[in-house]
Design a protein around this nucleic acid. Sequence first.
DNA 1: CTTGGGTTTGAATGGGTGTTCAGTTAAATC
DNA 2: GATTTAACTGAACACCCATTCAAACCCAAG
Lengths: 194, 194
Amino acid sequence: MARTTGSHSDITGPRIRDAALRLFARHGYAAVSMRQIAGEVGVQAGALYNYIPDKQSLLVELMRDHMVELLEAVPVDRSDPPLAQLEAFVRFHIGFHHARPDAVFIAYMELRNLEPGNFAEIEELRGRYEAVLERILRDGAGAGVFDVPDPKIATLAVIAMLTGVTTWFRAEGRLSLGDVQDQYWDMVRKSVMA
Amino acid sequence: MARTTGSHSDITGPRIRDAALRLFARHGYAAVSMRQIAGEVGVQAGALYNYIPDKQSLLVELMRDHMVELLEAVPVDRSDPPLAQLEAFVRFHIGFHHARPDAVFIAYMELRNLEPGNFAEIEELRGRYEAVLERILRDGAGAGVFDVPDPKIATLAVIAMLTGVTTWFRAEGRLSLGDVQDQYWDMVRKSVMA
DNA sequence: CTTGGGTTTGAATGGGTGTTCAGTTAAATC
DNA sequence: GATTTAACTGAACACCCATTCAAACCCAAG
């Protein structure tokens, strides 16, 4: 067990993931080479393979980590009324995604670069997240609070709308994150209300 | 001027564009090689260069054609009341995009693979399309029909929501295109109404 | 039936790809 | 101070990349 304090492995590992996240988001998985990632970390390409088995695994790991983090953070309190649950979801989605634009970008854009098995895994996680919102809408519709003929469609519509925020919102811009959350919550609320 | 009837150039040209559109949408611009495109057309890679100057131009052309077609097809009748204009826009957007899933995918996903000048050109076209919706919302808000604190945000929210349809809608599925248009129109209408 | 030219081939150019691995470096332990 | 070993280098491997171009092909026109 030599070399624990001075070891770099606990530094280089995360740095590789950070660099890959940024580069994949900026240029796309296929357009980024292992040499570029290594360059950002300040290491030769060969060294990356002490930390990851291959390029594809690096992508899957980034996407899985993002989705798992998302699922763990999403607020679900089934004792709250549906409207309150929906508001919590909307504000959470915007806030969470805004804090991780690169991960969001990758999770939505690089699905087609996943090998079939990996694709299925990530899609399953995404499905679980969508199910959270769908359940809220279904409960609210059942209680007569919401008017959504097809909760599945409404779920996809709302998530698409909310996720779009990451493509244009910048904290330095005209509006604060709170402003954006307020206005989106207003639109979502009205769009599903009975 | 020999060889007009037996010429292939009026066949091969479009076939290259078709193949590139499908392949770029499926695998991404960076992941598709000129050899793959040529293979789909049934020709050697070198032959592509009789029709396009380079790979990047092929991408730009596909994106520009899509955006120009979109801008020419979008219904704008300023004599209609804002609500009717909005409904026409919503139904048009869903219908038009549904008919060209590959072009939509490329136009939204491959922006980062454009060189700066080309990027600016495509963004300008996209801006013009967004301006159509923004104007409708602004007019309606001015007339007191709509309640949208920030028409710019509402524009982006609505477009993101509508464009999301292409990622999941399949004509063979549970719902018809008309069903989807109806429900989306219902949600959009409610979300912006005063 | 030859000619001219639009069209395509097939090879070559120079460079980049992901991945492997023997060898070197340097820090922690004994 | 010697030994161990995690961490990394640098070169090599086999292959793919976009693009160019002289040569071959093929067919309408004359």
